[in-house]
Design a protein around this nucleic acid. Structure first.
Lengths: 343, 343
DNA sequence: TTGTAAGCGTTATCAA
DNA sequence: TTGATAACGCTTACAA
């Protein structure tokens, strides 16, 4: 029970040749119905299973794709990955997931080792936009499709799937303004990355459009983590005039801000209103549910996978970028609703 | 810039043979220092990169391992995976992650498609213990190492890495008893799975050891999800005598229980005390922080990977099971501390 | 120390 | 419709 059956074993048993067996197994070619049936039946009988490694060597395709995310213990990325998997499994692809933990070094390592694993493509949410062009160049040279989702970077020839972050941020900020907030602060993040730049711009534009003053002191960049949200909020509470609302580019830093606000004895949403970003499950489950912006991650994953499949099927044709932009949805919860809806 | 350089290209350029190049590249063998250096230098110069597919075909190893988890958007599983990755990357392995979403059908599909992807081993946390022996048999037949972590099943010859769930549950329950709770309910889960059986047994034993009555009505099986915790808690609150403490086998269902308790106007921990399991980050971040049991997931991942590596290096020797059991740590927070420590 | 040649399991091309 | 053969890129006895 050790050795695996190959097409040669089947061929031998049926007095055929491996080529014929291969054809019969792959259906499509010119093969008599009789031998096809015969081959397929004995294949089952002999427990034959194709050796994907051999097939991969021959075809030059591994049917593995790499997915690189900053982390996978957030609902957002886990859901994107799920979407990717659902779309790709049925096409025979497998997904190798790597985490960067927001470390550029790990990101580069991941790309290289995925290349080394002969993946047919890399779908990624970039961690850090600075000067990684060398790695991306080598991807291009090797003709390995690269597709960004969510956190992207402008690279000629590289497609992306994102949401309309500007709009999501604009609507969130507008909502806070409608709630009567006058001094809205923004927890931003590395604005070298488009998503954070756009969230910032949407926030700023909403202020301007509604006649509120934009104040640089009320925008701080921090990473998407609870501790960073805490740090940022502390800075603002130490200022002489404190904000009366926070629009955070991340649910995690929003949560950190909420903790600090409460520790200072302030009330949410009365004293300070909050809106986060991503619709992480905990925003719904908190005693004080958190308003946020949903990014339809599963759909994002599926579409990313589809874009990848398109690029693969296009093969060596002239590369063309494709940019899909999904529409975000503002979800209003307790943390920003000053006039509660009656139960 | 299309075609990749192979060892033949290098051989040709240096008037050597592919075999020599291969040897020079793989260091170890008998090769003159001179040619080795020469080969390695030109390899770099020509941008040579080994074709892992060919190597895999030849060696019969893909250097991919499959990891199957119920879900990866929980900190616990994400951290285990991280541990596995950290340990395995340095050995040249890649990790293919699959989620079962607690569906047995998906689990079987995942196993099969990982086998199809020629993985060198499967590390998994099983979803459902019932009658899957066929799949596991085929793993054994193919000589693909299988290692369970956390959620395991007793299969002869299969190693596992778990925590001492009995002890974790015992300590958690004892803590509730020490807090003065008399009627402690237990949110269990599929007890076909050892971890849940053991948590149940630890809970029960703690009751018995401390002279409390064990009542079957206060043990309900539910899946590890917020909604399920809600459902379970509602059942208990509808009973004539309600519990004064809950020990949940999952942080997620503990959270659901907490929501329902509050919706009924009851106070935590005064009216009902709660302890969860897994130390998910949200248990720490809640306004009402949740007591829980830490399972050191990263270490669990690393050890699981080590056990895998051992099995691989053992090769075809007689199989022997190995069972590593880690010690859990009870973390006491607000949800179960009736006499708060002074700040 | 290096070369020769076979083989890993498939598929594609050409011929029969 | 089927067979023979080469090729994918690498490793490894065996020979030289």
């Amino acid at each position: 029970m050790k050795k695996k059956t190959t097409i040669y074993d089947i061929a031998e048993k049926l007095n055929l040749t491996a080529a014929t067996v291969s054809r019969a197994l792959n259906n499509n070619l010119k093969i008599s119905e009789k031998t096809r049936k015969l081959v397929q039946d004995t294949a089952i009988e002999m427990n034959y299973e194709i050796n994907t490694l051999a097939k991969a060597l021959k075809s030059g395709k591994s049917f593995n794709v790499g997915v690189i995310v900053p982390r996978m213990d957030s609902n957002f990325f886990a859901s994107v990955i799920r979407g990717i998997e659902e779309e790709l499994h049925s096409k025979g692809y497998h997904v190798i997931v790597c985490q960067t933990h927001d470390e550029e070094k790990l990101e580069i390592e991941n790309i290289n080792s995925l290349l080394n694993a002969q993946v047919d493509g890399i779908l990624m949410s970039i961690t850090n936009a600075k000067s990684k062009d060398k790695v991306f160049d080598s991807l291009a040279k090797k003709n390995v499709p690269l597709i960004f989702f969510d956190r992207r970077k402008q690279i000629p020839g590289v497609s992306s799937v994102t949401i309309d972050d500007f709009n999501g941020a604009y609507e969130a900020t507008k909502h806070l303004i409608n709630q009567g907030c006058k001094c809205i602060a923004h927890i931003s993040n590395d604005r070298e990355l488009e998503i954070f730049k756009n969230r910032f711009l949407g926030y700023k534009q909403a202020l301007i459009d509604h006649g509120l003053e934009f104040n640089e002191n009320f925008v701080i960049e921090s990473r998407s983590r609870v501790e960073e949200g805490r740090r940022t909020m502390k800075q603002w509470l130490a200022m002489e005039t404190r904000p009366d609302a926070i629009f955070s580019s991340s649910d995690f830093s929003a949560l950190g801000a909420i903790q600090v606000i409460r520790e200072h004895g302030l009330k949410i949403p009365e004293d300070i209103s909050i809106v986060g970003f991503s619709n992480e499950p905990f925003t719904r489950f908190m005693e004080l549910s958190i308003s946020t912006v949903d990014q339809s991650p599963i759909e994002m994953g599926k579409i990313t996978a589809q874009v990848f499949l398109e690029e693969v099927s296009n093969g060596d044709k002239i590369k063309s970028e494709k940019h899909v932009v999904l529409t975000p949805e503002l979800i209003i919860r307790k943390s920003s609703l000053k006039t509660p809806i009656s139960k």
